[in-house]
């Protein structure tokens, strides 16, 4: 399970970085979301991975660490709000600047029709 989680986090991060570097507002937003998923999963794993363990003391023989779960919950809420804000701003930027590139205009070589 550790290997699986590590691969998933790695894939999410790689995809996130790739998308952020595409520099178009839609892919940047999706990339930022993927990056925050990766960070949240990573945070989740910092309390050690356990199967079949509740976060309540005494309910079972094994129990897992509740703090990372609380942290992830907080981080998800904050990330959700920020993503909403970025989407609104990206739409605004598309409307005001007439382009969905993060610079507000296309790089020169892209502008010419090929």
């Amino acid at each position: 399970m550790e290997l699986l989680l590590a691969i998933i986090i790695g894939l999410l991060t790689a995809a996130g970085v790739f998308l952020v570097l595409r520099a178009r507002s839609f892919s940047v937003v999706v990339g930022l979301t993927l990056l925050s998923y990766a960070a949240n999963l990573f945070l989740f794993s910092s309390g050690r991975l356990m199967t079949n363990a509740a976060v309540v003391l005494g309910a079972q023989e094994q129990h897992t660490d509740p703090i990372p779960q609380a942290l992830v919950l907080t981080a998800i809420v904050i990330g959700f709000a920020m993503t909403a804000f970025v989407i609104i701003l990206a739409m605004r930027s598309r409307a005001d600047l007439g382009s969905d590139h993060v610079d507000g205009r296309l790089p020169v070589e892209e502008e010419k029709p090929s």
Partner: peptide
């Protein structure tokens, strides 16, 4: 709007990095 989009994108990436750092320390 143009500067804001970049500023926010940079800071959101750094927030993710912040979380990873906190996770490692924890």
């Amino acid at each position: 709007v143009r500067a804001g989009l970049r500023y926010i994108a940079v800071n959101l990436v750094s927030s993710s990095i912040f979380l990873v750092g906190v996770g490692l320390i924890y």
